[in-house]
Design a protein around this nucleic acid. Sequence first.
DNA 1: TTCATGATTTGAATTATATTCAAAAATTTA
DNA 2: TAAATTTTTGAATATAATTCAAATCATGAA
Lengths: 148, 148
Amino acid sequence: MKNLRPELIELLKKGYCTPRLSRLAAKTGSKATTIHYNIKQMEEDGVVKTYKAVFDHSKIKEGFCTFVLINLDRREYKTPEEVGKMLAKYQQVESVDIITGGWELIVKVRTKDIEEYYEFSKKALLIRGIDRTQTLSSLLEIKSEFVG
Amino acid sequence: MKNLRPELIELLKKGYCTPRLSRLAAKTGSKATTIHYNIKQMEEDGVVKTYKAVFDHSKIKEGFCTFVLINLDRREYKTPEEVGKMLAKYQQVESVDIITGGWELIVKVRTKDIEEYYEFSKKALLIRGIDRTQTLSSLLEIKSEFVG
DNA sequence: TTCATGATTTGAATTATATTCAAAAATTTA
DNA sequence: TAAATTTTTGAATATAATTCAAATCATGAA
């Protein structure tokens, strides 16, 4: 008998959820078929990317969260987009943005602990194309993914 | 006939979704009742905070995204947690973290455009307790909320 | 090892919900 | 105003979630 949680968490982190039409209908005072029609429309329009679960990261081996500010090495001729897409592939990476200001990229990373973060940073951050990084560690998460 | 989208978006941004047990069962090779049992458990354990929709922000009047680094005014005797909780109340705020490094807080903000961001910053950032801020604007979102 | 206890999985039955579809209502366009 | 389009609705159907009791599996004490 295997522990199903790790697999369920990975699947639910990105999808495998669906809107509760009848609850939305009750809440908004519309009929479920009307909600259905409107939501299908939003999906067709690409307004909705996915339906997913939001976890308490401290309870799923993602207790350590950092924001990494990245400066690119201009001699390597890699665009911020190229480097960003490479970083986005890691499952530990929650978000990647190309930004204005003193850095080219900001990356939000979640790992179990500092050790796992160190391993991640060696793999992902010590690469050609990345010149300098500044890591800001989260001491307390007050709100995340719009969930307070 | 009113436009239902704004209301649906606000509700789906934080909840009103549910896992698809039968799909998870098919994917993992377990029975739906087993998935049900395991997920109920995760919910009871507080591992899952909510089930929600992830939107294409450029399509729902949240096209402008910034990361705001915040230094607190030490003379005001407000803790980072107090200031963070005040900021978390705004619906434009996606996340708030207390961090290490040269700043006390990092806040991720989503608004329709620069104008709305300016209005937000006047309300939310020009308050007693906040000394200095540095705003990093997102030029391109490569990954967000674990969704690539 | 065996037994007893608790945890997890399963199948069958039930309940709740999503989906489909055709018709009606509302809105927009010409 | 009429016609065309979009949105809402109700009824019927199809899917899926939930409940519950029984079976299986895992754990640890004797």
